[in-house]
Design a protein around this nucleic acid. Structure first.
Lengths: 208, 208, 208, 208
DNA sequence: TATGAATGAGAGTTCATTCAT
DNA sequence: GATGAATGAACTCTCATTCAT
């Protein structure tokens, strides 16, 4: 995995306990209420700290959001890379990564909503940074895909484009599965298998 | 036709000329700056009307956004349904619909960003309506898919899930293709063919 | 009744039918919703005319309010003067005028609320005119009182001050009687007799 | 300075100093310009604070108004109850309370106009609260009256109705006395005695 | 470190009024 | 006469951010 970018993981976890509390509270709130629906005061209350403390650990609201997002991407990427390194066949990796996304939704983790939130509906000075973060993640996926293409495990295609396509595919279905209506229930049930099937068919080499 | 009232139609047009200007300006701004980044004053300026005029034609900012979005979805849906009714084979319909999305991006239409914007990053009282709109569109696509499945043109799968998956797949790539960097250029060039290929492989019947 | 001002009744009734409709609708709305709670659009709708028509018959919203108020005062004043001219004893006039106020409340006429509204809670450029109107009415009452004092029917006192005092006394109780709770019911029942008693005791000559 | 903490006490004062400044400025402005004529920006400017500070101490404009009004009522009520508790005869209490109202007017206190403002010309969601406040005040007066009736100091009558009648009587005259014309001057001079006389005659027992 | 009172620009929305038809 | 589309200033309220303590 020579060319793989790893600087998504920029900071170690043990920065400070308050910073961690803030990030955790913010992740939930951003996922639940969106970027603009989440005020700094609310984050402070939810984290059990003062507003001043927020600005002690983060330069601005934008930075809080970026930090939250960075952590989410880190987690997903680490999981995907771990599966890959286990030497599993590509079809199995795809299946498990899709399952990962759905189980996060089922467990109520904020990831699902957050990643959807991440690349749109964000004010302008922040958008380029978010897109860069997303690009970094997509590029990592693309690197994995390219490697698998080289080994003939998946068919040749534009790696970065394929990475974005897979991200969009999974996110769109998990986002719909977040609701609490009958359809969402159904998607949570059949989603992992169906989405993995769609993804794998899109990727598998000609003689499948 | 003696009693034909042609001015019903022409008046209807004149009545809504400002509404049309407003919708057009709003579509651009929402796509460019997001929902919260676009103020009513800005829409008014861009449309060349007063703030009051906005509220003459739309009850609220939310309604402006919904109107914009409704038009975008209707346009896309009409195009897709048109292709379907022409009796083209499913693979060809998929190819052309994907092309449609990309040509909207190339032509600078706001659709690409707008549809991505539509289902996230939106304040809470508005979100359910947006999701319903998106669901309506997805359901139409799902109906087309189900019909094609019945005819054996595409493989059996969960229609609504597949519709969301396709939407997400296309939107994620077109969204990335909106930028003005080298990668975006490349995606605009290879995107239509590559995305259509991905989509068709995900859909085609087993011996397709 | 030599010095009695009569220019409260400035215009004859037969001005225009639309103007009458507007005034009637406005009286209800102002009484029900207050000056600021009543928009020109609402008045127009309630009167069944266009907004333009309002400005055809009245120079401004302020003028509508003044016209409404002038009519209310005219009605009350005419009734009081009529009773006086009938040659009834002062105690009887007081009793009947008080009854008049209460029966307007019971009948749901806007007068009660309007007169209370009239001299306060009104924007600044309009207030002096309202106060002048009220003063004119109070001065008419004061003239009647002065005349009765001259005849020894009521005790000597400052006529204008007494007029304001009586107005305030009656308005405060009728205003409270406007509600739909138990206390308001009770006040509507016992109010006329009790208020007339209070007023007459305040006015009657020393030897009862 | 030897560690002396004098700022504990001054800080406690300072905590509410702004709230006090705001209330004071608002009282003046509401009295002078009415509820709708007084914007939050104006209150902020007059109080020498920012708009944000207004919302730091009060939840809304309505709350500012209620706070102002509550204080006015409390002041008047405390004074009236104090006089009563001194064991003065009822006629003397009436005289002094009336004087109190007039001296507030003479001193330029906003009370006079404010109390008149309080129960009318107020937007709908706020009106019930204002009326409840006024009722509370009226009920206290009514209790004092009922007690005096029990002792035979004033004649039997409906206590609450009488309380409202007295309030209205005094307010109407003091409101007229607020102006700066010749009549207002005269009312400020003769008002206390004349109004007390009117009130006492309305209340005194038969052989008083 | 840590606090939260204080700021003020800017948000969405209303509404009396005008004027071309 | 009569209309109602169009205007824009002014409104209440929010919220990211600062700073004296």
């Amino acid at each position: 995995m020579a060319g793989m970018r790893t600087n998504v993981r920029s900071e170690a976890g043990a920065e400070h306990r308050l910073a961690e509390r803030i990030r955790g509270a913010a992740a939930w709130l951003f996922a639940e209420r969106g970027f603009h629906g989440t005020g700094m005061r609310l984050i402070a209350e939810e984290a059990g700290v003062s507003v001043g403390a927020l600005y002690h650990y983060f330069r601005s609201k934008d930075e809080v959001f970026l930090a939250v997002l960075r952590e989410e991407y880190e987690g997903l990427l680490a999981a995907a890379q771990g599966l890959w390194r286990e030497g599993l066949p590509a079809s199995e990796v795809v299946r498990r990564v899709v399952e990962l996304h759905f189980s996060a939704v089922a467990a109520g983790h904020p990831s699902g909503r957050l990643l959807a939130l991440a690349w749109t509906g964000i004010p302008n000075p922040l958008r380029p940074q978010i897109l860069a973060l997303r690009e970094e993640y997509a590029q990592c996926i693309a690197d994995l895909l390219a490697e698998a293409m080289g080994r003939g495990e998946i068919r040749p295609a534009h790696p970065l484009l394929t990475a974005y396509a897979l991200l969009g595919l999974v996110e769109a279905v998990t986002a719909r599965a977040l609701g609490d209506d009958r359809v969402a229930d159904e998607l949570r049930r059949v989603g992992p298998a169906e989405v993995a099937e769609l993804a794998w068919r899109a990727l598998r080499p000609e003689e499948g």
